Computed example of a mutant assay.
Amino acid sequence: MLLAALSSLFPPPAAAWSRDGHRIVGHLAEAELRQPARAEVARLLAGEPDPTLAGISGWADTLRDEDPVRGKATAAWHYVNFGDRGCRFDPSRDCRDNDCVIGAINRSFLALSDRKRPLAERRDALKFLVHFVGDVHQPLHASPRRDKGGNDFQVNIGGRGSNLHAVWDRNLVGSRRLEPDAYASVLRRLPAPRDPTLASTTPAVDWALESCRLVDQPGVYPRERVVGDAYLAKHRPTAERRLRQAGSRLAALLNHALGN
């Protein structure tokens, strides 16, 4: 996948959930880690500038600029496109060669779980997993429309031009004006997802399909292409619920992968 293809699909300003959104997911997950997983996370992240799940949550996005070769190779791992075919997953069509966020989550989980693999490989797998679980819960990273995850749907917000993807990445969360750790504390008061354990054999597929169906809900695409306070107030609870789900589900993955 060429780096140019990533730029046309998800321009650099529209990284899922923004830096703060990913940090919120990391804070939420860290609060639900059991001790064995917590200890292994600490071992794997020793030496990182910020050796926490929140601290490494945005690493996968930084590869675009800091390691362009690797950024190019992992570009397609941040999303899955269903096109205009509805919310039905066909691996050979939607995730060829496992080159989508679903395949990336599964691959990272397996690498992290395998203690025979080199520490550096498992560290990167952890950093990828934290990020991609966040990505798949941003509805427009699993879209049933042919508009590049809402990047081609132009809107006006606060008198400025933007696009729907950026609104869901940044504005819904940013309009709360809370620091990530404080925001996570607020979201922890929400009910935990009903699936904190990995009952499904295909959780990443399920999470992507949830996102896809949310994109199809009435009102997500504003008719007048103007996004104001009413839009943000209406859809913020959905974004917050997805962040809450991402945090608990990420913790469940890590507790399962690192609990022995």
Rank of each mutant, 00 (worst) to 15 (best):
K234R: 15
K234N: 13
V186N: 01
Q138F: 05
H137F: 04
A204L: 07
D147Q: 10
K148Q: 14
D181M: 04
A184G: 13
K116G: 15
I102F: 09
R176C: 03
Q245Y: 05
A239C: 15
P237L: 11
L178K: 12
G134F: 12
D97A: 06
H27Q: 09
A251P: 01
I102S: 01
N151F: 04
C212V: 10
K72F: 02
Y231Q: 03
A75Q: 00
R117W: 03
R236S: 05
V186L: 09
A29Y: 12
L3M: 06
D216R: 13
R23H: 00
L254N: 07
G71F: 07
D90V: 13
D147C: 02
P68I: 00
R117D: 10
H22I: 02
A182V: 14
A31V: 09
T62H: 14
D61W: 02
T201A: 12
R107T: 14
H78Q: 11
D65A: 13
R249D: 05
S200F: 04
L28C: 07
D147T: 08
R34M: 13
N106Q: 15
L53G: 05
D206P: 01
W59D: 07
D124S: 15
D114Y: 12
A76M: 05
K234C: 09
A37F: 14
L119Q: 13
G159E: 15
V215L: 14
G47V: 04
G247V: 14
C100H: 12
V220P: 02
R244K: 15
D65I: 01
Q138E: 15
R107W: 14
V220L: 07
G103D: 08
L254T: 04
L28H: 05
D90Q: 14
P13N: 06
V220S: 06
